[in-house]
Design a binder for these strands. Structure first.
Lengths: 148, 148
DNA sequence: GCTTGACCTCAAGTTAAGTTGAGCTTGTAG
DNA sequence: CTACAAGCTCAACTTAACTTGAGGTCAAGC
């Protein structure tokens, strides 16, 4: 069989569902890589499709491009990443994801914990933080947020 | 007992952990309400603390302020929202949250579904969309994303 | 061999969600 | 009764993540 063709930016855009401009942008941010033809046009290997797919999913769950880029740096440079490589990456995100999943479930399940119990207004909730940590630690809704 | 005092913007900031400027901003966006003293200073009822807490949690799981504002519009205008009111709100978000939770689990569990199986490169994955929908529908990583 | 659609670069614009700063007013503690 | 921390408004700046546009090049079909 002929080795699978390289993809143009337009093809990647079509197959991945993201705009050409976004692909340029991801490349500028170091999230994907391409080499150039003699005429200076980008060509991508197939694995770019996986990368882009991961970028989108990761973004959808609230991981920033910067974080994604950082995570991608653990992927091999010159070898097409294997399933193992990708798995490694996702386990690296596990804690963060677990935290977010917990937050989401809390929100989904009726916010029953802290909000539902009225502790916000009664000032006696066992879950409340000490005031000082609140003011000392800059911002963030420390009260309701699941401890990391 | 004396009726619980109203809160100044600074007090709300300290207790909720968000900056004063953010509270101003939320108010401008219609997420929270205040009335003014004779000297034009904001005063907040206790329930603003709940609102702010919800705003932060909802944001953390990726709900935009615009969506939060929309959801808050279902809350009663002149009555302090009850636990029931808040529960209604969270059930309204349930579908969206379920979707996101599913996405996150997928990512957390090693991206094994579509990405792990290699369908991105082999073009035969049963989960793939028809090409046309992809190009017709603007952007978004339709492939990997769990159907809504 | 030319036309047309796909590419290229680079700068500027956009939206969300705030923050920062200037200039002015309030209110509370000594 | 006054100092000064806390408030107020409004405009401008910031960061992330792209998009849009201008001006110019490449390549595949007729």
């Amino acid at each position: 069989m002929a080795p699978v063709r390289e993809l143009t930016v337009g093809q990647v855009a079509m197959r991945s569902g993201v705009a050409v401009s976004a692909l340029h942008f991801y490349e500028a941010r170091g999230l994907i890589r391409s080499h150039r033809t003699s005429g200076n046009q980008r060509r991508y290997g197939r694995d770019v499709l996986r990368r882009v797919a991961i970028i989108r999913v990761a973004q959808e769950v609230g991981i920033s491009l910067a974080d994604i880029a950082r995570a991608f740096q653990s992927l091999p440079e010159e070898r097409t990443p294997t399933r193992e490589d990708w798995n490694l990456l996702s386990t690296a995100w596990r804690d963060e994801l677990d935290h977010k999943i917990a937050q989401m479930k809390k929100l989904r399940d009726g916010l029953t914990d802290c909000i539902g119990c009225g502790c916000m207004s009664i000032d006696k909730c066992p879950l409340r933080n000490k005031e000082d940590r609140l003011s000392a630690q800059g911002s963030g809704a420390r009260r309701l947020v699941v401890a990391r």
